[in-house]
Design a protein around this nucleic acid. Structure first.
Lengths: 233, 233
DNA sequence: AATCGTCAGATTGTTGAACAATCGGCCGAA
DNA sequence: TTCGGCCGATTGTTCAACAATCTGACGATT
């Protein structure tokens, strides 16, 4: 047998495993390395296609190569990085096909979430994200506008109160962030979305869930088309 | 700078990263360890809550502890195991809340996929899964009936031709497989689903996508209720 | 000149051992 | 009984080494 203990013991440990997320825990070194890399990826310091050498990163961050390796495993699981066996790991790059792929996930997750509505608190969070975007636009802060837009869509998924959907969505958003640095150069890129967000949010608040879903769907289709036009072929 | 080379070089490596999945590659030792553990998890050799000791598994499989560690990282990313810092890793166990969570994901993914239909080939694959289930039922093979049911739902998601949705679905199914050994003891558990699958598939083949979606949704709700009744509180 | 093998350098994959940090449980004291 | 501290076991992390593999260049052959 490859396992050590089972049976009645499992009962006790099982609930411990469930309560894992309540635990106070210091993020491991590997986690912090992964976090640092995630940050650099999100900020565009590391561009798609860039090769990440284990030893280099280990030196730069002052950790062991094995630890870097673990961090890479995390990032690879999130698709932020691609592992080419015996060749190294590279910052992931999305091809035209991937754009459609990503938006297909978003259509499934976001539309499903909004169609089922959510508690008043969750709806309020969506509204807050809309206002955050407006404020950013008023301040002329394009960067903040972008993150506000992500908050908006994150809040929509959060309506479902489903932890797994939340992580799926945050991963998808991370992938897009990695990819959209080119597009973001267009200063007015997000500006056109403000009205959409407002309209979707209003429909949500009015309880017109199906209409909100349709609006969101149309929005996503338009957004995909725009992205495909910018990148893509 | 933490990166080594960028710019024009990135262009070349970028497409290499994209074409990664076409590459001929031997799965690494860590991957094989992960695969072995996945198998044992799916077969119920390792029950939820069981503790997996690094050194033990390293010995049993004849690999290094570091390698086992990498395998664990893979499985943790798939939620099949849970890592308790400084305490070890345990086979994941789903609580009542998780059941709803998982089904929420399935509703989002599956219903979205079926509502958009798919190519005739993909629809045929769904039909094939239905027939596979009928054959298993006729043969009285409960195990085959279970896997046929998973094929059915996998085929539905495959309608969308979205790689990311496919992996999401397969991960969710893996989680459920891990969890449903108790339920599967009831020999007739899947039997009731046969008619549902047939009806859903028929609607799909007839192009009545909305109806197929509604049927599927109802099916998932019923399935969740059943599971919650068996486990749960 | 173009193609093909070969070779050297570099990087990854994997191992083994070591050590600190942390955890769980046992034992003793109040 | 309960609290506090100690002990053994396991994990987290590092380091060093080696085999396997890839890349690129050099040179030989056709």
């Amino acid at each position: 047998m490859t396992t050590s203990n089972a049976g009645t013991r499992a009962q006790a440990t099982a609930q411990a495993a469930s309560a894992a997320r309540l635990r106070v825990t210091v993020p491991s070194v590997a986690d912090r390395v992964a976090a640092e890399l995630r940050l650099q990826l999100a900020e565009g310091v590391l561009l798609p296609g860039t090769r990440l050498t284990e030893s280099t990163i280990a030196e730069d961050l002052g950790v062991s190569r094995n630890t870097v390796r673990e961090a890479f495993a995390e990032l690879a699981a999130e698709r932020l990085v691609v592992r080419l066996p015996n060749r190294g790991i590279f910052v992931a790059s999305l091809g035209p096909g991937d754009i459609h792929d990503v938006y297909t996930v978003r259509r499934a997750v976001e539309v499903s979430a909004i169609r089922n509505g959510g508690t008043p608190e969750r709806v309020a969070a969506v509204r807050a994200a809309v206002e955050e975007g407006k404020a950013a636009a008023a301040a002329g802060d394009e960067e903040a506008l972008g993150t506000a837009n992500q908050h908006f869509h994150g809040a929509i998924v959060a309506l479902a109160e489903c932890r797994r959907l939340d992580t799926i969505m945050s991963q998808v958003l991370a992938e897009m962030r990695l990819f959209f640095h080119k597009a973001t150069l267009d200063a007015h890129f997000y500006r056109g979305y403000l009205d959409d967000n407002e309209e979707i949010c209003a429909a949500l608040e009015a309880g017109e869930l199906d209409r909100a879903g349709d609006l969101l769907l149309a929005y996503l289709d338009r957004s995909e088309a725009k992205q495909s036009a910018v990148h893509g072929e």
